[in-house]
Write a protein that binds this DNA or RNA. Structure first.
Length: 189
DNA sequence: GCAGTGATCATA
DNA sequence: ATGATCACTGCC
């Protein structure tokens, strides 16, 4: 994919584990004042596969909180966890299938709650498109993370999910390899 | 290791 | 109306 192109609905309209894997190395772009933006390389994600995935919010049916997950791919799904941390997800797969990818690490920001705080992302982003118009989007960086540099582990904090808690649906770029790529950069527009 | 924190959801 | 839960973080 061409460097700098915005990842659009087609990219996200696929199984969440595939999207989670391929988001590694992409840029998360956060617009700032006066055309100043920052871009942050994605280095940690988790996939939530759908209604059959007991760790996935959607597995308990649609509620007001998780309704965005059931919508079309490529929108932000943002919710509050433990009363203080905003979690940033991007919806994946077909409309009606509650699947998403949790963004756990970008740039030098590790931890899903810390990155949203650092980047000023909150519940007002829920349901917005992952596009320029939505005020937050992904771009192809041209960085290819070799499969050997990616660790797969069980997802964090989902021990309640039985067998699904053990599935290797967390994707992390090896820290040594991460140091060889640009993490966060300021840029124009 | 565990308290903080408060919206959300199921139950009634 | 009430109580349990929670895709986390920071401090002990």
């Amino acid at each position: 994919m061409k460097t700098g192109s915005i990842l659009s609905r087609d990219f996200f309209d696929r199984p969440a584990d595939r999207v989670a894997r391929e988001l590694l190395g992409a840029w998360l772009v956060v617009p700032g004042p006066q055309g100043r933006s920052t871009q942050h390389v994605v280095f940690e994600t988790e996939a939530y596969l759908g209604a059959h995935d007991l760790a996935c919010h959607g597995s308990k049916g649609m509620t007001k909180r998780n309704a965005t997950m059931f919508g079309p791919a490529g929108r932000w799904y943002v919710y509050l966890c433990y009363g203080m941390h905003w979690m940033l997800n991007i919806v994946t797969g077909s409309e009606g299938v509650p699947a998403a990818v949790l963004i756990r690490g970008v740039g030098e920001h590790a931890g899903p709650g810390r990155l949203t705080k650092a980047l000023g992302i909150d519940g007002s982003f829920d349901g917005r498109p992952g596009a320029r118009q939505g005020g937050l989007w992904f771009e192809a960086s041209g960085i290819r993370v070799p499969p050997r540099r990616i660790k797969r582990t069980p997802r964090i904090g989902v021990d309640y999910a039985g067998d699904w808690a053990k599935k290797p649906l967390r994707f992390v770029v090896d820290p040594a390899h991460l140091r060889t790529m640009p993490q966060s950069r300021r840029r124009e527009s």
